[in-house]
Design a protein around this nucleic acid. Structure first.
Lengths: 292, 292
DNA sequence: ACAGTTATCTGACTAAAGTCAGTAAATGGT
DNA sequence: ACCATTTACTGACTTTAGTCAGATAACTGT
């Protein structure tokens, strides 16, 4: 443990020095750093102010003022969202896009400066190690928390979950027939967990009680961009922990045959296939695991 | 090239997000971030104000004020350097040391928080990849520049070089007999290169002309803490480049038998062993390489 | 319809981080 | 001995990066 901590601190120090300094010098050259950063986060596709605030962890007043400043400079346009009149959608203007390209070019130059003095072999090793570090850093940054199934993040995950299974099930999927209610996933009857990466929801999982001592896992979903980080395992372990605390001694779940990774995943985490225990028309496989 | 740049940018982004945010939140909790950072840089051993300014790239007025603030809080003591009355040496007071330990503890906590959610296997891979990235990031951060042999950085390198060979040569080493003058390494008669990592001198190498079309490499030295980064190769390549530009077509050098890495290094970079070409009493091996 | 929530905005303020010009002392080179 | 440099310090100032307490409008659930 001590060695690991020392390693991380050395890494932290070197990386902060190299990237931190250059980042700020490159990106914040002729405008405040946070403004560049904001332009960068808005990106070519534009974004909700709300989402930006979440991603950057910024005070709403401060954000508002920054947006006003960028607007005055003609770099962005702000208009209300068509779906929700409270939220604003920010887009880069033609000028803002040009500015973003400039920032991108600087950012590229920074990246190239990091390669300039390395040999070919060093570069290859560098790339591989960076991928690895990035993946694991993302994995270690994922935070799992209880959430109300009606909350925005939970609904976002569920919506994406349902649209994904609708696309993947050979028969499609109709949400009205799914037979699970939000209320099932609110303590003490059950619970819902959301996994977030840098503030954005990347996965969910829910638990409900079927009867005394019997629980059921529902709605396990991981966003495609966050797969391979071990989030599924962490969600499941956490749900099982919660279940155990509520005196659940066996957990069941069902799955559609088209979800091959899910089948493999449950088998590898200790779930045994059992006979049909419900009348879910979309289920082909039923599993159970005893909690000890 | 495009792939590499994209990789680096993704890495850059994830790392900045994870480390940057946490760093500032952890370290800057109850005092300004730069003050914590300064305490951290002063470290248990203390430091020259000059060196601190270089390392942190700080305005001297700003630095002065920060030091005054830390002094008022009783965290540091400042006194003139015994060697040079202009420079000040900063040391942490008892209280400052306690504060540093507190910062260290927070820093450790940050490191641990990065490991908390990883499995054992993930942690191992993480450590290996971080070492690799750190090494290569350091390698890529080394900057090589021409320097006056009388400059502070060059003298620092040469002093350490001579004291190292004095320790390693079985017969010791006396600088007065070395027979090379500073003036030899000033253009156009020769040149001296210094390699710097984050502003601090980490290695040097010099070239002088022996006769028409004939050059000689002298004083190649790499700081122990920066070995294995490929600095030697880069210095040598750069010296050869300079030599070629000055119509040198062959380069010679001599070496003491105790410098085994040096012998291996020169052999592997294209130098062939030749007969004695000078009367250097410390030399056991003589090399030459033709420049094409 | 209405109470409670959410998203954004405004004004008033503060702390942090830095810049710049000029001064004074010590040092190094000639 | 003297001049140019280097190092640190001071004062005056600016910009950057926030925080906090409301106000307002749009939405949500009942």
């Amino acid at each position: 443990m001590v060695t690991e901590v020392r390693r991380i601190r050395a890494f932290n120090r070197t990386v902060t020095r190299r990237l931190g300094v250059l980042n700020e010098k490159y990106l914040g050259r002729d405008r405040p750093y946070v403004e560049s950063r904001l332009l960068f986060e808005i990106g070519t596709k534009g974004a909700d102010v709300r989402a930006l605030r979440g991603r950057l962890g910024m005070d709403s007043g401060f954000m508002s003022r920054l947006l006003r400043s960028l607007e005055r400079k003609g770099l962005i346009t702000i208009r209300p969202s068509p779906e929700d009149g409270r939220v604003r959608v920010v887009r880069l203007s033609r000028q803002g896009l040009a500015e973003l390209r400039r920032i991108d070019a600087l950012s590229d130059r920074l990246a190239q400066s990091m390669l300039a003095s390395l040999t070919r072999v060093q570069t290859q090793r560098f790339m591989a190690a960076m991928s690895e570090v990035e993946t694991l850093l993302r994995a270690s940054s994922v935070e799992i928390a209880m959430a109300d199934p009606a909350s925005r993040d939970a609904r976002h995950c569920l919506d994406r979950y349902f649209s994904e299974i609708d696309a993947r099930f050979s028969s499609g999927f109709s949400r009205s027939q799914s037979g699970s209610e939000h209320a099932d996933f609110i303590p003490p009857r059950g619970c819902m967990l959301v996994a977030r990466l840098f503030g954005e929801p990347m996965g969910c999982g829910a638990l409900r009680t079927l009867g005394t001592g019997l629980g059921e896992i529902k709605h396990m979903w991981i966003s495609p961009e966050a797969r391979g980080l071990g989030i599924g395992r962490r969600l499941l372990a956490e749900l099982e922990r919660v279940a155990k605390k509520h005196r659940v001694c066996a957990i069941r779940l069902d799955t559609n045959a088209s979800l091959i990774e899910a089948l493999r995943f449950y088998r590898s985490t200790g779930y045994r296939e059992i006979g049909r225990y419900n009348d879910n028309p979309y289920a082909h496989h039923w599993f159970e695991k005893a909690l000890k």
